[in-house]
Amino acid sequence: MKSTLKKLGFALLLAAATASFASFATADEPDDGLVKGANAALKGKKVAFVPIAMGFDLTEAWAAGLKQDAALYGYELTIRDPNWSVDAGAQAITQLIAEKPDVLVIHPPEIQAYTRLVQRANAAGIPVVTMNLKSGANGDAFIGADWYDIAVKQTNAVVKLCGKDSGKSGKIAVMQGVLTNPTSQYGIQAIQDVLKNHPDVQIVSNQAADWDASKAHAIATTVLKANPDLCAFIGMWDNMDVGVAAAIKEAGKTGQVYVVSSGGGNQASACDNIASGAFTTYISYDAKGQARDLMMTVRSLLEVKPESAGVHTEALYTPLKTITKDTLYTGACWSLPDVQKYGP
């Protein structure tokens, strides 16, 4: 009850603050020669966002950032949720191209899925921003992780944990997500490249669980039984890797079999799991930071519309953060409810 009151109070305070900011912005802010023009350039513009799906930490964090800016600067934000369906996503983008938004933000589920649509949007003069998962054509900006780099960091961590000086078997397993995703396309290449120099570490199982925790659980359970001396799992997404961690826990091998995961650095799926020992090492691409990058990129594209869309692609690779029990500080992760409430 008390916490509800507290939340309510805070919400009121926030509303008041926003209101005062708005009035401040519109009423008699002195023109410093830039701010009024910049604000006017944003007002009434249309921004569209087509994620893979809403309802999970990454897309919710990005959307929270865009929503905040939309409220603040008065641009209109449309989110079309294809809910994991590539076809629905393509349909949404096709329609958006006909509606001509001022910026189109996409989050492609697969490398090739939206390539042609991005080209078509650019041809129609709509600037496109690609989020986190690279597409064949990325439009005017790409904001996201370098999947090769992540996998290199993960493999290096595994080599350190399981390599020849560790006293472990050197047997590792890879848990992929969806095979046509850049995570797999570039990640597997990186793992193989790193392991080339470390013959002491070998992959005994390499399977795909389609981002599904229960499928990962089933696969991991069997892999553990088949390889009792397994040293570590490389997982490609935290939301799926919890299934692997649960399987290890059931086998009573927590602490003996390592899980090296990666993800957006959400408190619930990253830091909590590191703290509990479910994950050993975690490579975070900080979705909260990506949200800020996205906000800025959209603003900049709205302020200065590129003369011809899609000619230059700005690449904003997200700085990666390695989280282990030793580097687990307050603020290493971000909390989704907080981001949704207070913005990124």
């Binding site: 994991w84 599904d212 229960s214 499928k215 659980h217 939301n239 919890v242 649960a246």
Partner: peptide, 16 residues
């Protein structure tokens, strides 16, 4: 049984 063995429930299995 499924949820308590993997500590979570992924609703997307509805589409699997």
């Amino acid at each position: 049984v499924m949820a308590t063995s993997v500590d979570s429930m992924e609703t997307r299995i509805a589409r699997s």
